[in-house]
């Protein structure tokens, strides 16, 4: 009989502590208190009432057990009541607003440069850079721009005073030759960097802008690899659904050369007045081609043994297209109203 009592006490105790943990308000507290120690039908009262049926010799022990439980319960209830009352006194309005904590942003151009780099890092490319003030050799001659050929006019060049044959690089392509000189095939590298053209500042021109160059040289590289790589890149960057088109073009340092377009992601060719594609359905993105054998030779690579492809794109251009920026000057004004929208 005493064992039954012990069991009952244990289960009442369990139930009590379970209920107590759920109490978060004074109302709920009152209910729990009533449930356990009400004079009429509380669990403890019921157990106490049951003591009268115990044999005489068991009564002292039973009384002691029940009493212990009673004290525990009462102490716990008192503690709980206090904490509930105190809580009420201390409460503040936590819906008051949080504080502005200053947060900056990376420049959108850095962000996009990083986006591009990560796609190529994923394909196992190295990243390289070269000097912004280049020799005419690396900027033109090594890239098969003949000295007096009109191809040199296509890139209006800044020259450096007092330095014969020094220019502000007009493209990141010089890094191709520099990298080939210092590495042996297979070569996989991209070269992001700052370039310069003598263009007056307006919404679509800037004397300073950024490019990413790419170069892959290995055995048996052919034109389909160029198409495959750039299609993959452009779909990664602009979205899976864009179509990619290659058109014949000319660059002195590639042969064959290709201009690469993506299908217009704004109108998909359906709007004849489209701001981006002007109704053609295609947007010109980058220049590319198979590396010219003269350029490979200038990089100390035998064109009979190795072949490769190269490409170059303007970071500003792809950024403007992807993020809907219509004025190139915004990148260089560093107005926080612009900066805080990206990066």
């Amino acid at each position: 009989m005493i064992n039954d009592l012990k069991n009952e006490i244990e289960s009442v105790k369990d139930l009590f502590f379970k209920e107590v943990r759920k109490v978060k308000s004074v109302d709920k507290f009152k209910i729990v208190k009533e449930q356990f120690i009400s004079r009429k039908k509380g669990f403890l009262t019921n157990i106490l009432k049951g003591l009268k049926d115990f044999p005489k010799e068991d009564k002292p022990l039973a009384g002691k057990l029940v009493n212990k439980l009673k004290i525990q319960v009462e102490e716990e209830l008192e503690k709980l009541e206090k904490s509930l009352i105190n809580k009420k006194e201390d409460s503040i309005d936590y819906s008051l607003p949080e504080f502005d904590s200053p947060l900056g942003r990376n420049h959108l151009l850095s962000y996009v440069k990083n986006e591009v780099e990560e796609i190529f890092i994923g394909m196992g490319y190295d990243i390289a850079d070269g000097p912004e003030i280049e020799t005419e050799y690396y900027n033109f001659t090594a890239l098969n721009f003949l000295e007096h050929h009109p191809a040199r006019d296509e890139q209006d060049t800044f020259f450096i005073k007092n330095f014969e044959n020094r220019v502000l690089r007009t493209h990141t392509s010089p890094v191709q030759v520099r990298y080939m000189e210092n590495n042996t095939p297979p070569i996989k590298v991209i070269a992001p960097g700052r370039v310069f053209r003598k263009d007056e500042v307006d919404a679509t021109h800037s004397p300073v802008f950024h490019q990413v160059e790419g170069l892959l040289v290995a055995k048996d590289i052919n034109f389909s690899h160029l198409k495959g790589t750039l299609s993959f890149f452009l779909k990664s960057f602009f979205g899976k659904s864009v179509d990619v088109r290659f058109r014949p073009s000319f660059f002195p340092f590639t042969e064959p050369s290709a201009e690469v377009d993506v299908s217009c992601f704004l109108c998909n060719g359906t709007d004849s007045h489209c701001k981006i594609c002007k109704g053609t359905g295609w947007i010109e993105i980058l220049g590319s081609g198979m590396v010219h054998p003269e350029v490979l030779k200038n990089g100390n690579i035998d064109p009979e043994e190795f072949s490769g492809f190269a490409f170059g794109m303007g970071i500003e251009r792809i950024t403007m297209l992807k993020y809907g920026i219509h004025d190139l000057r915004m990148f260089y004004e560093n107005d926080i109203r612009f900066l805080n929208q990206f990066g």
């Binding site: 942003r105 912004e132 004397p207 300073v208 260089y332 560093n334 926080i336 900066l339 990066g343």
Partner: peptide, 8 residues
């Protein structure tokens, strides 16, 4: 905030 300026 990151700024980018001309080199000139």
């Amino acid at each position: 905030y990151e700024a980018i300026n001309y080199s000139f």
